[in-house]
Design a protein around this nucleic acid. Structure first.
Lengths: 359, 359
DNA sequence: TTTAGCACTCGAAAAGTCAGAGTGCTAAAG
DNA sequence: CTTTAGCACTCTGACTTTTCGAGTGCTAAA
């Protein structure tokens, strides 16, 4: 089904006006906004048509028009201007991200903050579950009862734990343990760590005190938490500024959904590095998101690890600006984290992928 | 100024009823609730008295009475029943806390979750800024371009960083660096790390490549972030269920305040380990909290580190239950973290400290 | 000092009113 | 066949009015 250029122009005007004002938009406004040289009456005819085709709807007879999910989809796919960030904006982002490449977790959470800040929507930030393994294993002997376990993972994060024991051991034991663990526990995924493996390690180092179990426990724990990835949600308060969430009930439902990070674990599967994905209203699977939209961008977070950053807002979301911003942040992060030579952040150039079922 | 027993009984009834219903409470309800054998008219007289003394107020002539901050204060200080937790509740808390003593940060954030979950209010959880210093310093050599810095701090947390450098160095350099840093950088606070110290270290190890600067940078960064402590706020969504926040504007203001964790840094100074502090409405210094209440409990988080857990809610807060719950959580955490033999969690036994300016 | 009785007050909710923005339709004009 | 002006109609949101009832304070009697 083809849509005339004029209809598209009108649709775009409706979407953009509605994004701005959150009020149903009428024919006169459109005439003005879209700069069309035809009368409101003509536009009304076109509007009626767009309504019957499912791109717009009326809250009630004799109100202005409001875009449907289908309308937004068309807008996002074809009609949307690709927005460029202002230099100011890029600078804010750069400054706040590059300044603190300190620690991965911190950086991820900062990225979420940043996204929320520049878009004024709640943001979610996470890394996804590429199963990690141990690249290198070290023990640091502190005193006869204390040592530190240091794990270097394949994704280049370092995890550690301080262990106090109720009995003492010799420093030489540390060396032996290191050797054995480096030999047996590196390069394997969590599920490969069995009791058998632990027992055989115990024999190998002559451990009668359960040291191996303690260490193996930490290893398992680390690998499994890395796998489950940490999701951070920031800026939920932004929701409350939006007219669509003036009903506390609605706001509460969404915020509750977001605050349970386990709900968010499906998100990573939806994107590929480098593109921005937009999910509009009912395109979301989760019931709680059916009348909200989600914009996601993923980035390369170091070897074989994927990062994800996204925002959640009403379907009336400024897709073009949000997409541009997320895309930029994601690209910056890729550059910062992904050793693997991702192209530099395109200045506004971005690919939008979405559900292409266009009626 | 003395208050008769009957007045106290009435005040208590008003507070508790109001806590439950959020509606101004009238004389008849009180008669019923407090089980007094006098007529509503008598109670009305008493109410008028309590009003004039400033413990209660009327939203408007001819509505029921509502407690003032002063009324809540009296209630919290003298009238409140000390609530015991149900076994079920203690079990929930125990299970969820002890299960994952894995990592300090994680535990702290979990504790916040827990507090928010059992109280149904937003919770804040943080450790406070006892200035930390380095207890021990280690470097792990990975390959000619890569090493890991491992810091053991006086509060027994371990921080690390993986460093990639664009040039290569020898393993022996690591040993020398370790020695120098262990000698010069342990036991000193952040502000003692000067350029002079760094330069002299560089000379000592023969570092012409800026290695010392990189490492010192991380040390400074670590010490200063530890000092600023991480605060986590959880369960903000709970606010929206409360009638006092049905106005999104109000909810937004408070949530915004809470989401800026730097606002929360004054809290730790308000409590001492082992007691629970209640700040009611205008007793709070921050403007944004003037019509909310805060309940804080602090705990011993390992040597010379203090943890803090608290919740924020409307002045109409179930102080007795909240205090009991926080106290229990705090005690559990003290037990889990504080090596220093804190007494076991008292089962409901708790001390409430508060602003004792009682009119 | 307590209590019953009563007039009074005030707010919240329900009902009613009104203006205006926007529509669809019809019929004329291009 | 498309566009446009005109017009009657619809519906909402804002505003006002009405009503109802819970709760009060006061007075006078117990």
């Amino acid at each position: 089904m083809q849509i005339s250029d004029r209809k598209k122009k009108i649709l775009r005007a409706v979407v953009e006006e509605y994004i701005e004002t959150a009020e149903p938009v009428g024919s006169k406004t459109i005439q003005y906004k879209a700069g069309l040289d035809c009368s409101p009456a003509t536009i009304r005819n076109e509007l009626a048509d767009l309504c019957s085709k499912g791109y717009l709807e009326q809250p009630h007879t004799s109100a202005g028009r409001v875009p449907t999910a289908k309308g937004y989809r068309l807008y996002v796919n074809e009609l949307m201007h690709q927005q460029k960030l202002s230099i100011e904006e890029t600078e804010t982002i750069n400054a706040s991200l590059s300044a603190k490449a300190e620690e991965l977790d911190q950086l991820i959470s900062d990225a979420g903050h940043m996204a929320s800040l520049v878009t004024n929507y709640p943001a979610v930030s996470m890394t996804s579950q590429t199963p990690a393994t141990i690249k290198r294993f070290d023990l640091i002997y502190i005193d006869p009862n204390t040592f530190i376990i240091v794990l270097l993972l394949t994704n280049d994060t370092v995890k550690n734990k301080l262990v106090h024991l109720p009995f003492s051991f010799e420093e030489s034991m540390m060396t032996r343990l290191s050797a054995v663990f480096n030999a047996s526990f590196t390069g394997i995924t969590e599920d490969k760590i069995t009791q058998i493996l632990i027992s055989s390690s115990e024999r190998a180092v002559g451990d009668t005190m359960g040291l191996c179990s303690v260490i193996a426990g930490f290893v398992i724990e680390t690998l499994s938490t890395v796998k489950s990835g940490g999701a951070v949600v920031t800026g939920e308060a932004n929701l409350l500024k939006l007219p669509e969430f003036k009903d506390p009930e609605k706001a509460h439902r969404l915020m509750n959904y977001l605050s349970d990070t386990s709900n968010l674990s499906i998100l990573p599967s939806l994107t590929q590095e480098g593109d921005v994905k937009v999910l509009i209203g009912p395109e979301n699977v989760a019931e709680e998101l059916k009348d909200s939209s989600v914009v996601l961008a993923s980035y390369n977070a170091g070897d074989n690890m994927k990062g994800l950053i996204g925002v959640v807002g009403p379907t009336r979301m400024d897709y073009s600006s949000v997409a541009a911003k997320l895309s930029y942040i994601a690209a910056s992060l890729s550059k910062l984290l992904g050793g693997g030579g991702t192209p530099p952040p395109g200045f506004g150039k971005l690919m939008i992928k979405g559900d292409d079922s266009d009626g």
